[in-house]
């Protein structure tokens, strides 16, 4: 592996070169998949269809759970393949939806006769490509597919005037919880119900301190001043609600939590899973500072943190920043969250 540097146009002063641990921009997805295969002997990789899948498939009678999306959000989704979570994940090009052939191939790989759940983030391309993949699978094998679409980003106004809210942090929690339900032997309809419950009870919002740099593009997706941050940013560098001056972590926590709490709304006495996520370029030290601030605000609202997750799980390449997701829990969701999981990125109870 070598450091590769590129010249950047003069208009992007201050970002002298793109510095990434890659060989060639066009090979990043394939070579990362090869790395996953080399690192995790439990997993298999189909390099032609760009699918990461469990080595013990299909399992008769178990509902298959697959997801997928553009690359650049690692460990989502390939890092969530394994016992108790996803059966397969389809990797698209960086920030580009995978194509229906991939979802067709993955659906066939994981279908043990009990049907397949597709976990889809609400982006126009992802929704349509998964829909076509499901249609092809139904036509080809008669596979029964149910898709659940995540749309938890409160930064986007949900209305008929937009493509709807984006699927962000809740996707990670949903994949863990629905995966556990499938592992328990629940039916496709039951697994889909659990997945819908997670999406309906979860809300997220993100904040960027820097842009990200797509390898094939070579320069930052957007310009953000040294003293600015983008509130409500999406995971592909989409614009947020507003650009505001840099602020201390306690203020950022409040800026993110207030819209989240008001939207569901979360109420005093609620038990939540509190997920403080890094967008790829922010150290864990800072994420724990964020978690501390978030926990103080939740305590002030009487919202109890029943479970927590802190780390880089749904990222935006090298973007510095964070997102906060709250998921209102009930006993079923708590026991599914606690159930054993063995994937590259989440692992407990094994």
């Amino acid at each position: 592996m070598v450091f590769v540097t590129w010249e950047v146009p003069a208009i992007l002063e201050g970002t002298a070169v793109m510095k990434k641990l890659i060989n060639a921009a066009e090979d990043v997805v394939t070579e990362a998949l090869q790395g996953i295969e080399a690192a995790h002997p439990d997993l298999r990789v189909d390099l032609v269809n760009k699918i990461v899948y469990r080595g013990d498939l299909p399992r008769s009678g178990k509902v298959g759970v697959i997801s997928g999306g553009g690359s650049g959000h690692e460990p989502m989704h390939g890092g969530f393949v394994g016992l108790g979570m996803l059966d397969a994940a389809c990797a698209g090009e960086v920030f580009t939806s995978p194509v229906p052939d991939q979802m067709l191939a993955a659906t066939k790989l994981v279908d043990g006769g009990a049907g397949v759940l597709h976990v889809v983030k609400n982006y126009t391309g992802d929704v349509m490509n998964f829909e076509m993949g499901a249609e092809l699978a139904a036509a080809e094998t008669g596979a029964r597919v149910v898709a659940v679409v995540t749309d938890d980003d409160v930064a986007v106004q949900d209305s008929t005037w937009t493509a709807g809210r984006r699927g962000v942090g809740v996707t990670v929690l949903l994949e863990k919880i629905a995966g556990a339900a499938a592992e328990q032997g629940r039916s496709l309809d039951e697994v889909a119900d659990v997945a819908r419950t997670v999406n309906a009870n979860g809300r997220s919002m993100g904040l960027a301190l820097t842009s990200c740099t797509v390898p094939a593009v070579g320069h930052p997706t957007f310009d953000l001043g040294e003293d600015e941050m983008e509130l409500g940013v999406g995971i592909h560098g989409e614009p947020g609600r507003e650009r505001i001056p840099l602020a201390p972590a306690r203020d950022i926590a409040a800026l993110l939590l207030e819209p989240i709490l008001a939207d569901l709304p979360f109420r005093a006495g609620d038990d939540v899973l509190c997920f403080v996520n890094g967008l790829g370029g922010t150290p864990l030290l800072e994420l724990y500072i964020m978690f501390n601030e978030v926990s103080k605000i939740l305590s002030g609202h009487g919202v109890r943190i029943a479970r927590s997750l802190v780390g880089n799980y749904i990222t935006s390449l090298d973007m510095a920043g964070t997102s906060v997701t709250l998921l209102r829990m009930d006993d079923d969701l708590l026991s599914l969250w606690d159930a054993p999981v063995k994937t590259p990125a989440l692992r407990w109870g094994i």
Binding site: E93, T96, S97, P98, V99, P100, G125, N129, E131, M132
Partner: peptide, 10 residues
């Protein structure tokens, strides 16, 4: 469908 990706492919 197999090669374009995004929303334009479908």
């Amino acid at each position: 469908v197999s090669t374009v990706g995004g929303a334009s492919g479908p």
